[in-house]
Simulated scan of single mutants.
Amino acid sequence: MEFLDSEIMKHFMHSAPVNIFFKDTECKYCFVSEICDMVSAGENGSIVGKTDLEVQKFSEIGKMYYEDDKKILATGEGSQYINEFLMEDGKSLYFEIKKNAVRNENGNIIGIVGIVDNVTERVRLEKNVEELSIIDGLTGVYNRNYLKYRVEEKKKQLIFPFTVIMSDCNYLKEVNDQFGHEYGDILLKIVAGTLKEEIPEGSPVIRMGGDEFMILGNGITEEKASELMTNIQESLKQKSKEKIPLSLAMGSYTVQDKDFCFDEICHKADMRMYEDKKRTKADEGVEIIE
């Protein structure tokens, strides 16, 4: 194939379906096929001769790009990642960046070549699929997958004191046995809706399976948790029907700082919930067989 001269090569690169860029050994742009809205091109409309520290509108991302460039130049190892840009309208744009070191015929690193691809639609679709996978189809609250996919991420955003509230429907089996599972489903929907109504925003409600629900209480003190549980019980009592008695066994456990074991506080809240269930059954003269 006939060798392409530099001008023709530029036409090819400007027509590429992704944004192509070259940088020198000082992390400065030598070429970029497209100037996007995420950078400040200056009066001459160009970012050539500048680093990401100078041109990125999001300074933290500019710093991260620059440090990544220096690492590539030092090690010769490429990189690949997706960055989120939160826009003024509250929506996010996502760009995937891939970069490799460029070596000359002697094996010396002489710069960086990279591409930038707008993957916003792909990421949004992936997030929608993930969101569907963590929502309980019957009640509309989160399901157990939430703990699998989100808890480690959310631990970094916890507000202390932090409280776990465990709850279990007292009469689901009786409702199912006497009136059918369709009434049991109605019971679960009402309970889930009540929990969402009473629990402050930012504290996820999770259906753990069957008739058991968990609440992750951000910024909820032990006293506040007790008040919330009382309010929930009162609200359920008012919503009870003859065929659908609404009542929860509930228990909570509160920690004051990040030095805690998540499984341990869930277990302690669960034990307190079980003690509450035993008291309820004892008041009704029903024996619980362990």
Score class of each variant (00 low, 15 high):
residue 159 I to Q: 13
residue 4 L to S: 12
residue 107 G to R: 03
residue 119 V to E: 00
residue 275 E to C: 05
residue 176 N to W: 12
residue 11 H to K: 14
residue 46 S to A: 04
residue 202 G to Q: 05
residue 180 G to I: 14
residue 290 E to M: 11
residue 97 I to E: 01
residue 50 K to R: 15
residue 289 I to Q: 09
residue 286 V to M: 06
residue 209 G to K: 02
residue 56 Q to A: 09
residue 46 S to H: 11
residue 192 A to S: 11
residue 167 S to V: 00
residue 48 V to G: 00
residue 114 G to A: 11
residue 10 K to A: 09
residue 74 A to S: 14
residue 281 K to G: 07
residue 222 E to T: 08
residue 194 T to W: 05
residue 227 E to K: 12
residue 61 I to A: 07
residue 57 K to G: 03
residue 83 N to F: 15
residue 78 G to V: 01
residue 200 P to I: 08
residue 109 I to V: 07
residue 35 I to L: 12
residue 92 S to A: 13
residue 165 I to L: 09
residue 251 G to T: 02
residue 116 V to S: 11
residue 160 F to V: 04
residue 148 K to G: 06
residue 124 R to P: 00
residue 134 I to E: 07
residue 183 Y to R: 06
residue 55 V to I: 13
residue 58 F to D: 06
residue 281 K to T: 08
residue 31 F to S: 03
residue 173 K to N: 08
residue 185 D to Q: 11
residue 17 P to Y: 04
residue 197 E to R: 15
residue 144 R to A: 14
residue 96 E to K: 01
residue 258 K to V: 01
residue 110 I to H: 05
residue 109 I to L: 03
residue 86 L to M: 11
residue 173 K to C: 06
residue 234 E to W: 02
residue 142 Y to Q: 01
residue 192 A to L: 03
residue 265 I to R: 00
residue 216 L to V: 09
residue 180 G to V: 13
residue 150 R to P: 01
residue 64 M to E: 10
residue 44 N to A: 13
residue 253 Y to H: 14
residue 221 T to D: 07
residue 78 G to P: 02
residue 215 I to K: 05
residue 159 I to E: 11
residue 9 M to L: 14
residue 275 E to G: 08
residue 83 N to L: 15
residue 97 I to V: 15
residue 66 Y to N: 08
residue 51 T to P: 02
residue 82 I to N: 07
residue 240 S to A: 09
residue 88 E to Q: 14
residue 78 G to W: 08
residue 51 T to D: 02
residue 269 A to V: 05
residue 212 E to C: 00
residue 183 Y to E: 12
residue 45 G to V: 05
residue 9 M to V: 12
residue 33 S to I: 06
residue 153 E to V: 13
residue 173 K to D: 03
residue 225 A to V: 04
residue 281 K to E: 00
residue 55 V to Y: 04
residue 194 T to K: 00
residue 189 K to G: 02
residue 98 K to F: 00
residue 214 M to W: 06
residue 228 L to R: 03
residue 99 K to L: 05
residue 251 G to K: 07
residue 112 I to D: 07
residue 149 Y to P: 00
residue 124 R to A: 08
residue 211 D to V: 03
residue 178 Q to A: 12
residue 3 F to K: 14
residue 113 V to I: 14
residue 246 L to W: 01
residue 282 A to Q: 14
residue 222 E to G: 09
residue 273 M to S: 02
residue 177 D to C: 03
residue 162 F to C: 04
residue 135 I to W: 09
residue 122 R to C: 05
residue 236 L to V: 08
residue 71 K to A: 03
residue 219 G to Q: 10
residue 203 S to D: 06
residue 26 E to R: 09
residue 212 E to W: 08
residue 182 E to H: 15
residue 126 E to Y: 15
residue 20 I to N: 03
residue 118 N to T: 12
residue 137 G to H: 06
residue 77 E to N: 12
residue 56 Q to F: 13
residue 240 S to Q: 09
residue 95 F to A: 01
residue 184 G to A: 10
residue 289 I to F: 15
residue 163 T to C: 02
residue 57 K to F: 03
residue 189 K to Q: 14
